[in-house]
Amino acid sequence: MTALQIIFILVAAATLGAGLMVVTSRNLIHSALWLVVALFGVAVFYVLLQAGFLAVAQVVVYIGAIAILIIFAIMLTRRIMDEDSPTFNANWGWAVFVALIIFGALTWVLTSWPGISQPMAELSERSDPLRQLGAALVSPSLYVLPFELASVLLLAALVGAIFISWERK
């Protein structure tokens, strides 16, 4: 077992444990903080996969913006909810069942696929994934249309969020 594999197992265990704490923790603030741990674990995986830009974007966008937004929303909607009302709804047994079925089915489908044992492809010496990504996002023959659509979507979400949460006098 190499050092990378040990790092992978440790980070995977921490991320999955944090994910479990997110969905089972009674206190919402604790849930949100565990969510930060889980998102950070995913950022470590991006580093292991040599996608450095995505790792930085994960920290900036997910941890820096989304998790903080969620913490703000929890503080704005605070109530007795986290003390005496039940954490789970009546269907939680079925939820465990469905989640286990999905996990088993995904694992089975993926491990029976022949490409699963393929080793990691070599990155060629001259190629620079970051430069390639930047060029692909603005190249008309690749992803400029989805990229612009994403920015329009973000603008629409911004306007929509302000409009929805506006307090009318």
């Binding site: 995977a12 969905v23 939680w92 469905v98 989640a99 999905i102 694992t107 491990t111 044992s117």
Partner: peptide, 30 residues
């Protein structure tokens, strides 16, 4: 060298945990 299957099984597990949270929790923010 980390096999591809490790990443995929990890992702499947994380997805299932998220799915459980969506199906089982009462609080909309969770």
């Amino acid at each position: 060298m980390i096999p591809l299957s490790w990443y995929l099984i990890f992702a499947a597990a994380l997805f299932s945990i998220g799915l459980f949270g969506v199906l089982a929790r009462k609080n909309a923010i969770v």
